[in-house]
Amino acid sequence: MIRYINIKNIFIIYLVALIIMVVLKGDLSDVLARMESIIEQRNEGNWNISLKPFESISSVLDSYNRFGVNIVTVKVAILNIIGFLPMGFLLPLLKKNNTSFIKTMLKCLVFILIIEIIQFIACIGVADVDDVILNLSGCIIGYIFYLIVRPVIKS
């Protein structure tokens, strides 16, 4: 029982931190400025959504090939993966007998989609299918890590 409560509390703290980092990305003035900018872009006919898979990922790779490492874009791509590693690891720990890969990834996907929809509707970011791909990749890596340490956790 204590183990479950600790994992649950850790997971809640992780989710709150993730939402603050992914959705808010700064203080209130940053969020308001971003919202204003996105609303202006919408008024000009440019929506804050990207539904073409691998468009921004290939843009990052192309930029890397042409100009070398662009720290900002590489950092964003890596953080999109790393930020979701704990989700893929912690979700199976919350349920002893509900640790299947498919169920875990579906839960991760639903949460990721909720974040992307919130960003789109609230005009606080771009809803990007590549973010979904990178975030889900992080969940998969986290789940693989869970599989590696599961024998140690069970004992």
Results as ranks from 00 to 15, higher is better:
114 I>R: 06
109 L>R: 00
126 V>T: 15
52 K>R: 10
11 F>G: 09
126 V>E: 07
151 P>L: 13
132 V>R: 00
19 I>N: 09
135 N>W: 07
77 A>M: 15
36 E>V: 06
87 M>Q: 03
92 P>A: 05
65 N>S: 10
140 I>F: 15
63 S>R: 11
49 I>G: 02
92 P>D: 07
110 V>D: 01
47 W>E: 14
23 V>R: 03
125 G>V: 04
77 A>K: 04
152 V>C: 03
109 L>A: 08
64 Y>M: 12
116 E>A: 04
118 I>F: 14
1 M>R: 12
108 C>V: 08
87 M>R: 03
120 F>N: 00
149 V>M: 03
116 E>I: 00
52 K>N: 05
103 K>V: 04
153 I>K: 01
141 I>S: 01
132 V>Y: 01
24 L>Q: 05
110 V>L: 13
89 F>N: 03
4 Y>G: 02
52 K>Q: 09
114 I>T: 06
129 V>D: 00
80 N>C: 06
98 N>C: 04
11 F>T: 15
3 R>E: 12
72 V>D: 09
69 V>N: 00
16 V>S: 14
77 A>T: 13
9 N>C: 12
102 I>W: 02
97 N>Q: 13
83 G>D: 01
155 S>R: 15
110 V>A: 13
154 K>M: 13
2 I>V: 12
33 A>D: 10
151 P>A: 08
130 D>I: 07
150 R>E: 13
41 Q>D: 14
139 C>I: 07
71 I>K: 10
44 E>V: 00
37 S>N: 14
52 K>T: 09
96 K>H: 08
86 P>G: 01
144 I>A: 09
59 S>L: 06
22 V>A: 10
144 I>Q: 04
151 P>E: 09
4 Y>A: 04
47 W>I: 06
106 L>V: 12
78 I>C: 09
42 R>K: 12
41 Q>H: 11
153 I>E: 07
95 K>Y: 15
155 S>T: 09
155 S>Y: 10
